[in-house]
């Protein structure tokens, strides 16, 4: 009320009033203190509403994005089941996903296997005075968790980011609109092939990552801890059952869906020029990684309940 009476524009920086013309109001120090209190409380309320508005806006835009992603997924599913998938485009995308990710998957999973062997060897030596169960522990960690999750992380950072950047650039340059005008639905033309490529290639890459990781572990177990290769592999094979293999394998299909859907959705909704494509790409990788880790927990819970362990 006081602000209305006096007008905001008369307030100098720091919120202090000029003394001219308002002597009656500020004649006592008590009034001044009350005014200061009122002003501070009003600033706090204003900031609270500002923050609340921002938070509400973020929630609304997140839900809006989620709705769009679900709509896109449904539309894509309809196209997949209706047929008419371009096998040529899907094969090209599969080569793209597999070939681009293969070297980096080989290197990372080999080193993950080596690190596991190093850590487990050190740990088992401190407990049992010798490196034992290395094959079992390494294959357990790799096949059930590290193989699927790390492969998904690498694919999300390389292929997911590339998909978002490509589709985002197409969106910015009106190429998606051009597809519409030429009688082609961009979801059918661009999303279906990328989704199928991720869906079939990620589990394959996961299997390769598991095998390479186990060999990485064997390398360190053999050369550093003097565990014979046949002992190491017999431990690995004793532990691996079909259900153990399926535990990680099934997860990788879900991770592939997360990567493809998030990457395509973020690319399709890129805006504000080159900077916007950069933002979309970053957020695609972050969202994929977060969703992979969250879904990993729930999938593990579900698969364990279903005795796939």
């Amino acid at each position: 009320m006081v602000l209305k009476l006096l007008g905001n524009e008369n307030l100098p920086e720091g919120g202090r009033f000029p003394s001219e013309g308002i002597e009656n109001f500020f004649e006592s120090s008590e009034s001044m203190k009350r005014w200061e209190l009122f002003r501070k409380s009003e600033i706090k309320v204003g900031l609270f509403f500002e923050k609340a508005k921002k938070a509400t806006g973020s929630i609304v835009s997140f839900l809006e994005g989620l709705g769009k992603a679900v709509k896109m997924t449904m539309e894509m599913t309809v196209y997949i089941f209706k047929g008419g998938i371009s096998l040529k485009d899907t094969a090209l995308q599969m080569v793209e996903v597999g070939w681009k990710s293969f070297p980096i998957i080989m290197v990372t999973s080999f080193f993950v296997g080596m690190v596991l062997a190093l850590q487990m060897g050190t740990a088992t030596i401190s407990f049992f005075n010798e490196p034992v169960y290395l094959g079992m522990i390494i294959s357990f960690c790799l096949i059930k968790e590290l193989g699927p999750v790390l492969t998904a992380m690498v694919v999300s950072g390389s292929i997911g980011a590339a998909i978002t950047a490509e589709l985002g650039t197409m969106k910015i340059n009106d190429q998606l609109d051009a597809l519409y005008t030429l009688g082609t639905n961009p979801i059918r033309y661009l999303v279906v092939s990328r989704f199928l490529a991720c869906f079939f290639m990620l589990p394959l890459l996961t299997v390769i990552a598991n095998i390479v990781g186990i060999f990485g572990g064997m390398f360190i177990a053999n050369y550093l801890w003097d565990v014979p290769s046949n002992i190491y592999f017999s431990e690995v094979l004793d532990f691996i059952s079909l259900l153990t293999f399926l535990h990680g394998f099934i997860k990788s299909f879900f991770f592939a869906m997360v990567i493809a859907i998030v990457a395509c959705h973020k690319g399709f909704n890129a805006k504000n020029g080159a900077g916007g494509v950069g933002i979309a790409t970053t957020s695609s990788v972050i969202y994929s990684m977060v969703f992979i880790l969250i879904s990993d927990y729930f999938l593990t819970m579900l698969l364990t309940t279903l005795n796939v362990k």
């Binding site: 340059n173 009106d174 609109d177 051009a178 005008t181």
Partner: peptide, 12 residues
């Protein structure tokens, strides 16, 4: 209907 885009919008 054919549409000519301002920036051509060719497929890269």
């Amino acid at each position: 209907v054919g549409y000519v885009f301002q920036e051509a919008a060719l497929f890269d």
